[in-house]
Design a protein around this nucleic acid. Structure first.
Lengths: 367, 367
DNA sequence: TTGAAAGCGCTAACAT
DNA sequence: ATGTTAGCGCTTTCAA
C-alpha cells in the first residue's frame, strides 16, 4: 500500500503537502497540486482512514445496536439508517443484541473501543445496561424506537400509544365487540405504550379490555402465532385483534387461519409498523405504518448534531407521525380475488418532530 | 479517556508494561501485573482499538457488502454472518449496494480505507466492479451467494441449479403440466443457475419449458407479483410455478390470489431460500431452504483463513446443501385450517463443502 | 522482568 | 506556498 510519504517522494514535495491536497485544508500551488494529484493517481494512493482517525479523533463511523436485524422491521429500519448514514458520509458498524444483555454490552464496548463518532441504539429492553455504558462514555447517542423516560438521551420514535389508539379506534369502527391485543416484549416501551393505546381506546368506547386478552410476547411471527393460539383458547369469540407489530400480525393471521377463522370477516386484525411485506401477505394487512425514512433521517441528523456540537445537543425526543394503511385484514376491503394492491386510505397521528416533548400520556381521557 | 500512559503512571510502571498485561504478550511479574490491573480497573481504561490497528495492521473488523439488507433473505443472511463474526471476535461494517454500481464501489473503498481485515461480498450483479477493486487490493475476500466463474475468489453458496432442479422435480411429481419460472435479476448467477435447474428438470421430464414462461426480475415480492401477473396474462393456464426466491414467491402468491387462483389446488408453487417467513404466510410456502447458519459459518471461517494464512488461501468454492421443505403451496399439505405448522418432509441436494469444485453443470443429461 | 524508543500513517500547528 | 515537527495511542524490537 502506497502511503503518504511515497506520494510525497514521487511528487517531489513534503508529506504535509500531500495532506494539504487530499484534505483541501490548505492552499497549494496549482503546479504542485497537479504533481501531487498525478502521483496519487499513479500510485493508487488512498489515505489510511485508521491513521487519520487516530490523528483527528473522528472515525466517520457510527455504531448501530439493534435487537435483531433479521426481523423485517429492524431490517428495514437498519437499511434506512444505513442509507441515511451513507448520505452524510458515515459508515455503520452493526451489532445485534439478540436478547442477550451481555452481548449488547460487548457491542457497546466494541463500538467505543473502535472510536465510533456516535451510536444509534435500540436495546432489547428498556432497562438495558447499554444506556449506562453509553452515558458514561459521554459519546453522542440517539435512541430509536424505544422511549425510556428514565434515561436522558435524545430519542426518535413514533407516537406508539397514539398510533395504537387510532388503530384500535379503527377496529372499534368496524363494530367489533371482543378485543384482544398482542403486544411486544413487556420490557420495551413500544410494547407498553401500544398496549396502553389499545386499552385507552377501548376504555373511551366503553368496551371492556380484559387483561387476559392482552399478551406481551416477542416481536416475531412465531410469538404472534403462539400468543394468538393461546388467546383464542381462552376467548374463542375474539373478533378484533390489534397486533403491536406486523410480524406478530403475520403469526396471528397464520393462527387465525389454522383455527378456521376468516380474517376480515370473522375477525378484524390491524398490525403496526407498515413493513413492506404487509401489502403482500394474505389477507393484506391493515397496519399503522411507521415512516422508516423520516425516522432514519431524523436519527442520523440528531446524531450528527450531537457529534458536531456536543454542547448544544439536547436529550429531547422527536415524535414522528404514523399512518393507518387500510387494507383487507380489518375488513374494509374485500379479501383476495381481483383486488390488486390497495389504494390507501389513511389516518395519521400528528407529528411533533424535533421538539422537547413529553412522552404522550397514555391516557388523556375522552377527546 | 484514560490512556495507556495514565495507567502506567498510576501503576508506577512504564507504558510498555501496560501493553504487556493487556495483551498477555509478555511475561510480567505477579505484583506489577496486579498493580497494573488495579490501575486499569480504577481508571476504566480500555485500549484504543484504532491505535492498536494502526500499530498491528489488524482491525478485527470485516466489511459486508450486500445488495439490500432490508430484503428478508439478505437480512437473515447478514444477521447470521454478523453472528458468526461475533463468535470469532470480529465486528462487521455493513454496506448495501442498492443496485448502484457506484455505491458498491464506494463501499468497497470505504472498507479498504478503514482497513478491514477482509470483506464478504454479495454484489448486485456478477459483473460488479467491486470484484476488481477487491482483487487489486489483495485483501482477503469471500464471495457469497453469487458464483461467478470468471473471478478467482473463494466463494460459498448452495447448489443453485441442483436445488432448483429438485424443486422443479417436486412440482413435476404433482402431475403439473404448464410450468412457469420466476427467476432473479438476470445478471446474477443464482438467477441463471436456478432458471437452468428448472429448465433442465423439465427437459428431462419431456415437458416444454417455453421461454416466455420464464421471467428474470428482482428478488423482491413486488417484482414477483408483477412478473406473475405478466406471466398469467400470457399463459393463463399455468399450473406450476417455481420462484427463485421466497420473496418473489410471496409476490406470486399475492398475484395468484388476486386473480382468483387457489394455490396448492389450481396451481402449485415452490420457492427458494427458506426464509423464516415462509412458514407463516398463507398458504405456507414449500421451498428449497438454504442453510443460513452453515453458509455464514463457512463464509466467516474461510475469510478467517484468508486473513490468517494469506498464502494458503485458495479460491475454491464451497457448495452447501439445500433442503426441500414441503408445506402447502405445492399441494402436498391441505391449505389452511387446522394444519398447525408443518412437520417437514425433506429432500436434500448433496453438500460438497470446502472442496475445489466445479460449478455444477447446468445440465448433466438424464440422471 | 522491565524500560526506552522507534515506528504505524496521518493531521495540524508552527516555521520558513 | 511549502516544509518541519510534534503528537494521536498503541505494539514491538532491543537493551538493561
Amino acid at each position: 500500500m502506497a502511503s503518504r510519504v511515497d506520494v510525497a517522494r514521487r511528487a517531489g514535495v513534503s508529506p504535509a503537502v500531500v495532506s494539504y491536497v487530499t484534505n483541501g485544508s490548505h492552499p497549494v500551488g496549482a503546479a504542485t497540486r497537479a504533481r501531487v494529484l498525478a502521483a496519487i493517481e499513479e500510485l493508487g494512493y488512498r489515505p489510511n482512514a485508521i491513521a487519520r482517525s487516530l490523528a483527528t479523533n473522528r472515525s466517520h463511523t457510527m455504531g448501530l445496536l439493534l435487537p435483531d436485524s433479521s426481523n423485517p422491521y429492524f431490517a428495514e429500519l437498519s437499511s434506512a439508517i444505513e442509507d441515511a448514514a451513507f448520505a452524510v458520509g458515515y459508515t455503520v458498524l452493526l451489532g445485534n443484541g439478540g436478547g442477550e444483555p451481555e452481548r449488547e454490552l460487548t457491542y457497546v464496548r466494541t463500538f467505543l473501543d473502535r472510536k465510533v463518532d456516535g451510536v444509534i441504539v435500540c436495546p432489547d429492553d428498556d432497562s438495558s445496561h447499554a444506556y449506562e455504558e453509553l452515558i458514561r462514555a459521554r459519546i453522542p447517542v440517539v435512541v430509536t424506537d424505544r422511549l425510556n423516560q428514565d434515561v436522558a438521551l435524545p430519542a426518535v420514535a413514533v407516537d406508539h400509544a397514539g398510533g395504537a389508539r387510532t388503530a384500535t379506534e379503527h377496529l372499534i369502527g368496524h363494530g367489533r365487540r371482543v378485543f384482544a391485543c398482542i403486544s411486544g416484549s413487556s420490557g420495551t416501551s413500544p410494547a407498553q405504550a401500544r398496549a396502553a393505546g389499545w386499552a385507552d381506546a377501548l376504555a373511551d368506547a366503553g368496551i371492556p379490555a380484559d387483561r387476559d386478552r392482552l399478551a406481551f410476547v416477542d416481536f416475531t411471527a412465531e410469538a404472534g402465532w403462539a400468543a394468538t393460539r393461546a388467546l383464542l383458547e381462552r376467548t374463542p369469540d375474539i373478533d378484533a385483534l390489534f397486533a403491536a407489530s406486523d410480524m406478530q400480525a403475520v403469526g396471528a393471521l397464520r393462527a387465525l387461519a389454522d383455527t378456521g377463522r376468516r380474517v376480515g370477516e370473522d375477525v378484524s386484525v390491524v398490525g403496526f409498523d407498515g413493513i413492506r411485506l404487509s401489502d403482500y401477505i394474505s389477507p393484506r394487512l391493515t397496519t399503522m405504518a411507521q415512516p422508516f425514512d423520516a425516522i432514519s433521517t431524523a436519527v442520523v441528523q440528531r446524531l450528527l448534531e450531537g457529534i458536531e456540537e456536543p454542547r448544544k445537543a439536547d436529550a429531547g425526543i422527536s415524535i414522528l407521525p404514523t399512518e393507518l394503511v387500510i387494507r383487507e385484514s380489518c375488513g374494509c376491503l374485500p379479501v383476495g380475488a381481483g383486488a390488486g394492491r390497495a389504494t390507501y386510505q389513511t389516518h395519521s397521528t400528528p407529528a411533533v418532530p424535533f421538539a422537547h416533548q413529553e412522552i404522550p400520556s397514555t391516557h388523556q381521557g375522552a377527546k
